[in-house]
């Protein structure tokens, strides 16, 4: 007989295979598909392309990043008009994050993605001659592909270490139509605290505890110019907590490597 520990080991191994597949290194013996398992509509293909566009890129550029003063390129004051351009590629974001962190922490980015331009509303773009609606889809068109050449934001994730504690982190910077509070709701944050800063930015912060012993902090800043900076840090592998209610991976430390106040300082830093 086995016990639940073995079942959890099995889940962890399957998660590892999923992560390996996502980075293109999966030891997967993919069987020949004799049948299509589900109808693939045009939209699905388009969305798959969108997904591929924002897909978590291979961690080829990963590595431990520490603060490097020589890379400091943005010392603009914390005003909307004087800030440098928003990082639009994962590598730019990594470089900028390194500057913002200074000697506060070191990090290793293991997942990277580019984000496509935001839609003009919170709904998919309307159909056009080059973007025709598919039959039965009403007015729903296909989404923009996330061409790295036209990406307007980036996402990175990985592990971060500070003061002897290691945890997972996720960081997304891009122009957005979303509101900071939405990320509190989405992340099941307890007691979401939303405030408006002197420059008009809105900041949402909170703590999530998705599993026994797991702590995740969230800080989401929406600047007046529409730029959103979302950062989550946790004492476990996946600061986003995976699918709601699921374990969120291995717990690395008894506490997250950064405090919530440090997270606020990072997203509101004038070094972005």
């Amino acid at each position: 007989m086995s016990d639940l520990r073995t079942l959890h080991d099995a889940f962890a191994e399957l998660e590892r295979r999923a992560d390996a597949a996502a980075t293109g290194m999966a030891p997967v013996a993919r069987p020949r598909r004799a049948v299509r398992l589900a109808p693939v509509a045009a939209t699905v293909v388009a969305v798959a392309a969108l997904v591929a566009g924002v897909v978590w890129l291979v961690p080829g550029g990963s590595g431990t990043h520490a603060a490097d003063p020589s890379t400091t390129s943005s010392t603009a004051p914390a005003t909307t008009t004087a800030r440098g351009p928003v990082p639009t590629s994962p590598d730019d974001l990594i470089a900028r994050f390194r500057v913002v962190l200074g000697d506060t922490a070191t990090f290793e980015a293991t997942t990277k993605a580019s984000l496509p331009p935001p839609s003009t509303s919170n709904s998919p773009q309307p159909p056009s001659p080059t973007n025709p609606p598919r039959p039965g889809a009403g007015s729903v068109g296909t989404p923009q592909l996330a061409d790295p050449e036209v990406s307007t934001g980036a996402v990175i994730g990985g592990t971060l270490t500070s003061a002897g504690f290691t945890g997972g982190f996720g960081l997304m910077v891009h122009p957005s139509d979303s509101e900071p509070r939405e990320w509190c709701d989405f992340s099941r944050v307890e007691h979401c605290d939303v405030s408006t800063l002197p420059d008009g930015s809105r900041l949402a912060t909170g703590t999530a505890r998705r599993a026994p012993g797991a702590v995740s902090y969230l800080a989401c800043l929406k600047r007046p110019d529409g730029t959103m900076l979302l950062m989550q840090v946790s004492n476990q592998e996946d600061p986003a907590g995976a699918v709601i209610g699921s374990p969120g991976g291995e717990i690395y430390s008894p506490q997250p490597p950064l405090t919530l106040d440090q997270l606020k300082e990072i997203v509101t830093s004038d070094k972005w």
Binding site: F11, L14, A18, A26, L50, V54, W56, N122, F186
Partner: peptide
Amino acid sequence: MEFAEYVARQRPALMRFATVLTCRTWL
């Protein structure tokens, strides 16, 4: 929240869940 934001943040977690559910990464 925009769809692309959701996908960027959540697809890895959905892949994990779906892999645990199906036991096959390709599926």
